[in-house]
Every structure is written in structure tokens, then in C-alpha cells.
Write a protein that binds this DNA or RNA. Structure first.
Lengths: 197, 197
DNA sequence: CACAAATGTAAGCGATACTAACATTGCGGC
DNA sequence: GCCGCAATGTTAGTATCGCTTACATTTGTG
């Protein structure tokens, strides 16, 4: 991170890391290129040598998030021989990323980075993470046709994703009263994810 | 909208309406107080006579959205004697608002307006819409205790909400291939919302 | 070793949210 | 009716931000 002279050394990587920290700290909107530049001790124009614009930098941060997610999915599948346990563990990985790194998760799913002009470095890892989820659902019931698998994947994913959105958005604050704990709710959500059709 | 002289007439209401249109057009981030002021033919500082800041204006727009939602819920309950049909219709109302007015929906659920310092004009209608949803789920099974009802409400709401988020975010673009249509998916989601536990 | 490409800087443009000081209007009490 | 004051609007300014242009320095390569 320390500068060695006129040139930074690896400003591109430093920007990505600093942006990731800022995202985790205050959400995607809290990332200011000017701030990052000042933090890293370079001029405000320097970041533009490495990223076309703010979106391009955030896209790179999001891409790392999707790579992480695909990895977590892979581990969940690898360590569980029983497909049902594997799927439950996969769902847990999704919840885990969302609750452990809420800022990153928000960047990945709530921002407009995933438009038609999204770079391949972003769409690639995102597609890989979807494929892993799809495979985990398919393994439960190898007989089912593809449309059924996709329908199950989407409904299950929806339940998980919606739960995350509502919890992270504080929408369940007044409602998760005793004796309804968050942990209990998570188990209920995971149960629902497993229901076929 | 036309000015009658030095004073606008009802700038506050005009700002809310113009902001609502801007939200629907380009999402919450597309609302610029300067733009609204110019459109309405007043100075850039005029809006601050009616709203403390940008957030306060957007909160008012969101509040109207929650009022609309609570109303829709009420209609769904009123016109269906069968509680199961009523719940399905309630869920449809949620999806309807989300797909008919995606910008408003995003403002209501994806922005940070609902913090601890949210004005009563926003938290009130939001709580009312939750109560209506809760009641629709409770009507299905009057025997169940409150924790069970809440758990069912939250899981069902999660499924609906997540589906909306994924569709609106374009995350299902490549996956909703034939013969898996969006309409079919909506029915599957509604089915899942009805499943007890 | 010279020169070109890569990478950095300085300065500035235009947009934005918001504030402070001042101007105009319209309404309620006399 | 009119007069003062609160409500409402304006002008001008601050600070931040993304981004661009023109120029400076460094580094690697033929």
C-alpha cells in the first residue's frame, strides 16, 4: 500500500481492496473514488488509469463476491455425500455470505451493475454461482426434467433471497419477537427451500 | 403545476408528485431536487422550505406506496370469502404493485429510508401493510399460535419478495427459458406461499 | 540508450445536496 | 382596511462528487 515513488506499485489491486472495504463499511453508495484516491495517497485522477469509471471498479468488487460464492457452493457440495444435506449446506452458504458481508451482498444483488453491458469478468462468476446452485437442486431428484429443476431452484432461491432482503432491510425488526428467534426462522427458511414443487 | 405568482400554490404536493414520477421513471437515484425544482419552475432552494432534505421527500413518496399497498391488501381480503383465495389474492397484490410500479417498489424496499429515524408518516403505513398481510395468513388457520402465524407470514413474504427482487434485478434472464414462462413461475411462487410450515 | 507505453499529477468542468441571508406574499388581529 | 409577522420563495455560495484534458514521470523494450 505504501508508495515507493512516483508510481504506486499496484494501484489497481489496492483500489479494489479499498473499495471492497468501503462497500462493507457503508454500502455501495459509500464508495467515492476521490476518497479512495486520498486514502491510497494518489491523485484523484489516478484511478481512471485503471478503471473506466466508478461502475467498472464496483463491478470488479462484485465479481470477487460471486467467485467467493461459487467457491462456497463448491465446498458445500464436496463435503456432503447426501444431496439433501448438500443442498441445505449450499443454502446456508448463501445466507452466510449475505449475513457475514452484507455490503458486498448488496453490491452483488441490489445494484445496477448487472445490466446488458456488464463485463465478462462479472457475468462469468455470476453464472458459475447460479450453475452450482442449480446442480445442488438437480442432485436431489435426478429424474426430474430441467424445467422442474429450474422452477424448484428459482422458488428456493427466491425464499432465501427474500428472507435476506427483509432481514437486512430491517423489515422484520418488530415482528421477530419471542419466542420466534432469528435462528429458528433460518431453519424454517432452509426447510422451505427443500420442499419439492 | 402552473405558477400564479411569487408563490407556487402547493409546492409540497407538487414536489411529491413530481418525485413519484421521477422514481418510476429512473428509480430512487434518479430523483434530483434541482431537477424537480426546475421542472416546477421554482428555485433550487425552494424545496427545502417543505422538506428537510432529499430523504424526507422520498420518505413521503414511499409512504404513499405503503398506503396503496395496504389498500390493495384490504380489497383482496374484502372480495374473497375463502381465506385461501384471499391470501392468494393478497400475494398477487404484492406482486402486482412490484411489477406495475417497480421504481416505487424499489424505493419502498431497497432504499435506506426505513432506518431508526424514519418519520411516523412512513412507519405507520408500512406497519399497516404488514398487519394486513399477517391477518391474511392468520385467517387460513385460526387455531395456530402467533409464533407459527408469524413464521408462515415471514417465509411466504420472503418467497414473494425474493422472486420480485430476482426478476426485477434481471437475475433470471437466462434461466427462465421455454417452456418455463414467467406466468407459470408466478403461479408456482403463489403455491409455495400457501404451504403451511 | 532512446523512445514509446504505462502510469501518475494538476487543474478544471458540470452536477449535486444543502445553507445563509434576503425578498415577497398573504393572513389574522386590531 | 391595514399592519405586522410567519410562511414561502430567491440569490448566492459552500462542499463534494464523477469525470476529462493536458502535461509530467517512470519503466520496459527494441
Amino acid at each position: 500500500m505504501a508508495r515507493k515513488g512516483y508510481h504506486h506499485g499496484d494501484l489497481r489491486a489496492a483500489l479494489i481492496q479499498a473499495a471492497a472495504e468501503a462497500v462493507e463499511q457503508g454500502g455501495p453508495d459509500a464508495v467515492s473514488l476521490r476518497d479512495l484516491a486520498k486514502t491510497l495517497g494518489v491523485s484523484t485522477a489516478a484511478p481512471y488509469r485503471h478503471f473506466a469509471d466508478r461502475r467498472a471498479l464496483l463491478a470488479e468488487v462484485a465479481a470477487q463476491g460471486f467467485e467467493q460464492l461459487a467457491e462456497d457452493y463448491g465446498r458445500a457440495a464436496a463435503r456432503n455425500p447426501d444431496p439433501k444435506v448438500a443442498l441445505r449446506d449450499t443454502a446456508r452458504a448463501y445466507l452466510g455470505l449475505a449475513f457475514r458481508r452484507p455490503g458486498l451482498f448488496r453490491l452483488m444483488f441490489d445494484s445496477d451493475l448487472m445490466g446488458p453491458d456488464a463485463p465478462a469478468s462479472l457475468t462469468g462468476p455470476a453464472a458459475r454461482s447460479w450453475e452450482a446452485l442449480h446442480a445442488a437442486v438437480a442432485a436431489i431428484d435426478p429424474q426430474a426434467d430441467d424445467a422442474t429443476i429450474k422452477r424448484r431452484t428459482i422458488t428456493g432461491w427466491s425464499t432465501l433471497h427474500g428472507f435476506i432482503a427483509l432481514v437486512s432491510g430491517g423489515r422484520l425488526k418488530g415482528f421477530m419477537t419471542e419466542p420466534l428467534t432469528e435462528a429458528e426462522l433460518v431453519e424454517a427458511i432452509l426447510d422451505k427451500t427443500l420442499i419439492a414443487d
